[in-house]
Amino acid sequence: MLKINGQETDAAGKSISEYLSSANYEPRQIVVEINEEIIAKERYGETILKDGDVVEIISFMGGG
């Protein structure tokens, strides 16, 4: 299990690209951080999620 946006998720072994597509995220609108390190978009295919990872999928929203 790993944590994605605060939720325990069973996604170990999947690449970031695979996870984003299965969870219905639009890669152009987001940034992915694993264990506080930002992952460059070109590495989404090769980066494999591991048990214990803390993943944040972040985007913009309205704010002041």
């Binding site: 609108q29 944040e56 972040i58 985007s59 913009f60 309205g62 704010g63």
Partner: peptide, 17 residues
């Protein structure tokens, strides 16, 4: 224009940009 950064919603939510 200012913006905030938050955990993303999935596709059906619109992109402010």
């Amino acid at each position: 224009v200012t913006l905030a950064v938050r955990r993303a919603q999935t596709k059906e939510h619109e992109n402010i940009l």
